[in-house]
Design a protein around this nucleic acid. Structure first.
Length: 433
RNA sequence: GUGGUAGUAGCUCAGUUGGUUAGAGCAUCAGAUUGUGGUUCUGAGGGUCGCGGGUUCGAAUCCCGUCUUCCACCCCA
């Protein structure tokens, strides 16, 4: 009986694995460049962990199970609660600021579609315990640093940045009640995702004051921080938030990634827990869903039973990223080798087959990648095999080994070959490591 | 959860108004090639036509159901 792969999952054959590793290796390298340390947790947690800050709808999109001890568990749909739990457990012992990253495998029981599967990987970086705008800047910088390292430019991607703190202050200034804010965030977040008329209607349903709604609509169109003060009167909170944003853009400019960054009031993020800077990165063409998103959240650790410590972080999924990298021609099929050997040993004299195994083992123990053929057919066939294996050098064991203990070492790129005494070759391996 | 789309070899796809033994390219394996590789030529293997039911003398083809894919909606941590 043939059992199919589960809906919304992927199989990583060596070819796909090479692509996956290309992405993950890039993520990890960028994280380390900015001084983040890697962590990971279990792939399942108590179901309750994901009910703390989410409603029932989100819990429905969870893969959950009951174990034999009756524990209600869920496969992790995100790593942030695990991060909060882990940090809380050792919060007094960890040196600040805590700069951690992770590349967890996550599962969500959603309907699969373009750029979204039921099982995926997500790069997360977080800085915990640092209030300075420098931390906000580092998170954004690190994400841009990675994308730039793949070959994407400021023509391809843009980081849209805003501030919940600023938005909240402006909305309060317009007479929006405090409890209305959390209702309004998810609506404002849809601004660039739905037709203008539909957005207009949704907004006016919640904001009955026509003048206030008009002002909100104008605010959402703004793309420079300075334009805000021309549009509305600023109170102290708004001025403080504005100055923070200006700081942030100043730092990003000084870090050399200003061209990737743009102020965009319409970036709100649907989630309630963001309290400060929020950002999303998109392809400039705008066909795809966000490549990554994040922001500052002040209450996360506290929500999970810890102290009130501020944090800032972001997540980047592998699905949209891979689509983008393919669209931009950065990832192509057959550009990534699934196998690469330093040496392949070809056997020209069938009696030397055992010698090939011995020599291969010596080369491997010296730290090099090496294979020998299982079947010693024609030499031509073995060289063909070596070509397929992406080999740098092929060692031919033949008559000269029988007569003079010499190896033929063939450079597979140039086709040139030379004879080397077997003992010299082995000692050169040892001196190389 | 809702709507649409498609499903034929490992992959990409042909397959006539329903009609004999379902084909091609690529890939794989073997041979040409018993001391020299990526090319070329020859051959071979590989199919429950997604699965189940129905209509029919006869179904890859028509109908129903189901699973899966892709796309959009809901949602997006």
């Amino acid at each position: 009986m043939k059992i199919p792969a589960v809906k919304g999952t992927r199989d990583f054959y060596p070819k796909e694995m090479a692509v996956h590793n290309f992405i993950v290796d890039g993520w990890k390298a960028a994280s380390r460049r900015s001084g983040f340390e890697e962590f990971d947790g279990p792939i399942f947690e108590y179901l309750q962990m994901y009910q703390v800050k989410s409603g029932d709808e989100i819990v429905e999109q969870l893969f959950h199970l009951t174990d034999r001890g009756g524990r209600e568990l869920a496969i992790r749909p995100e790593i942030t609660p695990t991060l909060a739990r882990m940090v809380n457990q050792q919060v007094n012992a960890l040196p600040r600021p805590i700069k951690w990253f992770s590349v967890p495998r996550l599962c969500r029981a959603e309907r699969p579609q373009k750029g979204r599967l039921r099982e995926f990987f997500q790069w997360n970086i977080d800085i915990i315990g640092e209030e300075s705008t420098l931390a906000d800047a580092e998170v954004i910088f690190c994400a841009i640093d990675y994308l730039r390292s793949t070959g994407l430019t400021d023509k391809d991607i843009v980081s849209k940045i805003s501030s919940r703190k600023l938005l909240a202050a402006l909305l309060r200034n317009l007479g929006i009640a405090e409890d209305k804010l959390t209702v309004l965030y998810p609506i404002l977040d849809k601004k660039s995702k739905i037709p203008a008329e539909a957005f207009d209607e949704m907004l006016r349903k919640e904001v009955t004051d026509t003048a206030a709604a008009d002002t909100i609509l104008k605010l959402m169109e703004l793309h420079t921080v300075d334009a805000i003060s021309g549009l509305v009167d600023l109170n102290d909170d708004a001025r403080a938030a504005l100055s923070e944003l200006q700081d942030l853009f100043g730092i990003l400019g000084a870090m050399g990634v200003g061209a990737y960054c743009r102020f965009d009031m319409s970036i709100v993020r649907g989630l309630a827990y963001y309290t400060g800077m929020v950002f999303e990165m998109h392809d400039t063409v705008g066909n795809l869903r966000a490549v990554c998103g994040g922001g500052r959240y002040d209450n996360l650790l506290r929500d999970f039973g810890g102290p009130a410590i501020t944090a800032v972080g972001m997540g980047m999924g592998d699905c949209v990223l891979e689509i983008l990298l393919r669209e931009k021609g950065i990832l192509k099929d057959d550009t990534l080798a699934t196998k690469k050997l330093d040496y392949f040993i070809a056997v020209a004299e069938p009696t030397l087959a055992d010698k090939a195994v011995e020599l291969a083992a010596i080369i491997r123990l010296a730290g090099f990648c090496c294979e020998f053929p299982y079947k010693t057919g024609g030499l031509g066939k073995q060289l063909k095999q070596a070509s397929g294996y992406n080999v740098s050098r092929t060692i031919i064991l033949g008559q000269e080994f029988v007569n003079e203990n010499k190896l033929v070492v063939k450079n597979m790129a140039t086709g040139q070959q030379e004879q080397i005494a077997a003992d010299d070759f082995v000692s050169s391996l040892k001196s190389a490591c």
